[in-house]
Simulated assay, not measured.
Amino acid sequence: MGTVDDSLADLPEPERGSLQRVIDIARTLLPDAEEGMSYGMPALKLDGKPLIGVVAAAKHLSVFPFSPAVIDAVAHRLEGYSLSKGTIRFTPDHPLPDDVLEDIVRLRRSEIRK
């Protein structure tokens, strides 16, 4: 196991499964992504740069694509979710759509590898 898997293992369900789904989607698209820490959170990294991070807070879960531009690019598809320039908040009862998560990962990959 690695940093991300170890961090998720400590979470209760359904939070663990919800965040694991985010990581699994990213790993499916980018199997060469490495586990690590970025800005104090467990994250997948690509070419040594943060790709996507996940965090469980008291009342929500968060995805961090480490890019305000990526969030801006998908914001119109996330009505009903709480967004800021650095994070997308959701709950296990209101998960992020798979296609949006896939686009977040692809967009961030494009930024990293431009």
Rank of each mutant, 00 (worst) to 15 (best):
D10H: 12
Y39W: 10
S38V: 04
V105F: 05
A33F: 08
S7E: 05
S67D: 06
L101E: 06
F64M: 04
M1R: 15
L78N: 12
V70C: 09
F64I: 06
V22P: 02
I88R: 13
E111C: 11
T3N: 03
V54W: 12
I52L: 14
P68Q: 11
V105S: 07
D32K: 10
T87A: 15
T3D: 06
I104V: 15
R113Y: 00
D98T: 11
H94T: 04
D6M: 03
P95M: 02
R106P: 01
D10M: 08
S18N: 01
G2Q: 09
E102D: 09
G53S: 09
R27I: 01
A73F: 09
H60C: 04
E102L: 04
P12N: 06
R77S: 11
L61V: 03
P42A: 04
V74L: 03
H94Q: 12
Y39H: 07
L61H: 09
A9D: 13
V54G: 05
D6L: 07
R108S: 07
V63A: 15
L51S: 09
H94D: 09
P31N: 04
V63G: 11
S82F: 00
P50V: 02
A73V: 09
I52T: 07
V63S: 12
T91E: 07
Q20K: 12
L51H: 10
E111I: 08
G17H: 05
R109E: 11
L8F: 07
L30M: 04
